[in-house]
Structures are given as C-alpha cells and as structure tokens.
Computed example of a mutant assay.
Amino acid sequence: MTSEQIRRWKLALGDDDMDGLGERDQRLGHALSALYASETRGKRGGLGASSPKVSRWLGDIREFFPAPVVQIIQKDAFERLNLKALMLEPEFLATLEADVHLIADLISLRGAMPERTLETARMVIDKVVEELMQRLRAKTVEKLSGALNRSRRTRRPRHADIDWPRTIRANLRHYQERYNTVVPETLIGFARKTRTRADLDHVVLCVDQSGSMATSVVYASIFAAVMASLPVLSTKLICFDTAIVDLTEELADPVKVLFGVQLGGGTDINAALAYCETKIDRPGKTHLVLVTDLCEGGHAASMLARVAAFKQAGVNVIVLLALSDDGRPSYDVRNASAIAAMDCPVFACTPDQFPDMMACALTRQDIGQWASANGIDLVRGAS
C-alpha cells in the first residue's frame, strides 16, 4: 500500500487513527470527524453550540475543500448537528450577545437554510448589527465628521475646535498672578472645512471575503455603512474573493450588505484592485483601505504593480491585514513586505482603533507614527 493510500485510510478512519499524519492532515481529519463521526462507534458530531468553535470549523473546511464541496458539508452540518433547531429556539435568541463570529457563521450557512430559518437568521443578524452599530458608530462619527482643516486658523473657533496651546501662548501677557491662570482674550482655533460635493474625501473599502477574513468582513461592512452616512465622505464598499461584488448601493442597510457578502472561495486581489481603479477619479482625494491577508491566488506581481500605481497616482493606500478584535493576523509575509516597501502602512487593526486610524488618514497624518504610538506593529518593507 502506498503512502498516499495509507494517508487516505487514516483520514477516512478519522480520530481513531491519525498517528503519523502531518498537522494539516490532522486538522482536516478532526474537521471531518466533528461532523461525520459514526454514531455506531459511540461518537457524535463535536461542534456543539459554541459559535467560536463553529467559526473555526467552518474556516477549516473552507480551507480544505472547494466551494461546491463546502456547500454540501455545510448542508450536512445543518441537518446532522441540529443547527437549524438551535437558531429557531427563542430562548437561545434571547441570550445572544453581539458576536461577529455568529454573524459570520450565519452568513456562511445561509445557502443551506430553509426559508423559515433564514428569516430567523435575519433577525439574529439585525440584533447583532444593531449592538455593534451602537458600540462603533458614536466614536466613528465623532472622529470623522467635521474634519478639521489644520492649515487654516480662525479667531472665532467653536469650543471643540480651540487650539489651546496656541491660545495660551497668544495670551501669556494676560496672565493673572493672583489666580495663577491666563485670561484668554483671543481664542485661536481650527477652521472647519466647508466642502462642496466635488471636494469630498473618497474612501474605498476593498475587503477580502475569503473564509479566513470572515470577522474582518463583518466589521468592515459596518464601518462602511457608518462612513456612508457622513456627508463629509464619499464611501464605497467592494468585497471580493475570486469574484467581485460592489455593495456601495446597499450601504444604507448594513444587514442587507452582510447578506450580499459571499464568504468563502479563493482570493484574487489583483482583479479587485483593477475594479477599484475604475471607481477612482480623484486619486489625490482618495483613501484606499485594502482589508486582506494578502494571500493572493491570482497574479501577485500584477497585484503589487497596481498598488504601486495607486501610490504613484496619489491614492492614500492603507493595508489592514485584519480588522478583528484580537488584531493578530496570519498573512503573506512576502506580499506584505513588498507593499510596506512602497511606503504604504501595512498592519492589523482592532475595531476600536479603526476610527482613530481613519481620522489620521483623512487628515493625511503619518499613520506609521500613529500606529507606533498606539502599540501597533507595522510590517517592515523588504530590504
């Protein structure tokens, strides 16, 4: 018997006999055993009701199998592991917390859901999105709306726009020794930008929707919806795997956006950037935020050339290797280093850091300095 035949038998036997298999094959075997372990051997599916565990399992099967096979396995999981009943239990729905892993699971499984369950899934996603919007919207609006034009000064600033260090220096002659304070007779502050529609900043969120980026897609979609509501910005959301879906017209409804996402499949960043190029008509006013692990399945050299062309044209290119709570990405080091060498910031970002990062980008501040000040590790350029 050949080594490949032995390998296949070990995978078929599952958890009973995986000695001698590599780490990847053992993960594959465990992923299959969690669903297909024979009840005649006293085993049942091992996914349980844990959303993070289901998320990891879904990520594994998307890694190991092509999309048509993944759809079959997901459908089997829905039937064998009683996930349908779990999603239909009112008591379960009442106890749900805001969890991007749960949203990712529901989006991934929706093709296998019967209509009644699909309606319940929409209710769950709507509940989670509402909680996430409440958590993330206020800070995002505060940071991004009414962006300050720091090249202009005014002596009649709003209270929130007062430049206190300059104001104090300008009023030192009015120092009151008795009260140990300066009386600011003259206020100096920042003048807010007055913008026409043609002068708006443009943000293009280009988001990798392959299976490994599931939680990043959820957060990016919500932030895109928030930014689209701000009159000071023009926002586009483009999601991709090997296909491209432009969700810009759906941004008024974050739940509809998420139901337009197709988690899974391969990754063609080059094709996605080519599409983005057709949507950018003011490069000097455009901020391209590419959310991806840079594991390019298309033509890597062409992808890097497009990033370089964007940078040369004046587009503010930012690469987020992950937009997730843990901020610990797994990514293609070679591509990341090549893009970092183009003087583009490449790093992972948590949702709580994203509004500050975008405010920094919109005011054309040094994102590298901002990242360092916030303890974020930037990818270094290839030497």
Rank of each mutant, 00 (worst) to 15 (best):
H159T: 14
M358C: 13
F223V: 01
L28W: 01
D99F: 00
S151M: 12
G29V: 03
N180Y: 05
E185N: 15
A252G: 12
R44V: 14
A31L: 06
L144V: 14
K139Y: 05
A348S: 15
S212H: 09
L258Q: 04
E119A: 14
R282D: 13
H30D: 09
D76L: 00
L118C: 08
D17H: 10
S330M: 05
E142L: 14
S221T: 08
V141E: 13
T194D: 14
V319C: 06
F310W: 01
Q312K: 13
V203Y: 05
M342T: 06
I73D: 01
V346I: 12
E23A: 11
A170F: 02
A373Y: 11
A220K: 08
Q74P: 03
L144I: 13
D293W: 00
F190S: 09
P329Y: 02
V226T: 03
I168W: 04
L106N: 00
A371E: 05
E97T: 14
S324Q: 11
C360F: 10
S108V: 03
A301E: 10
F190H: 13
E185R: 15
G20Q: 06
I103H: 00
L132D: 01
Q5H: 15
D126T: 14
D268N: 15
P165T: 09
A361H: 06
V129E: 00
E296N: 01
G368C: 07
G265F: 04
L109I: 02
E97Y: 06
L247M: 12
T242I: 00
G381M: 02
G381Q: 01
P165M: 07
M113Y: 04
W9N: 15
A138V: 14
S38E: 14
G298T: 09
T292K: 01
R364D: 06
L294Y: 03
T154F: 07
R178V: 09
A274L: 09
D208I: 04
D15Q: 09
E277G: 11
A243K: 13
S337W: 03
T292M: 01
V315Q: 06
V128E: 01
A228Y: 05
G29E: 04
D17S: 11
A214S: 12
A220F: 10
F240M: 03
S234D: 14
L35V: 11
T194K: 12
A12C: 13
P351E: 11
L233E: 09
L200N: 09
T196W: 11
L237M: 07
E131M: 11
A94P: 00
P90L: 07
R169N: 11
A191S: 14
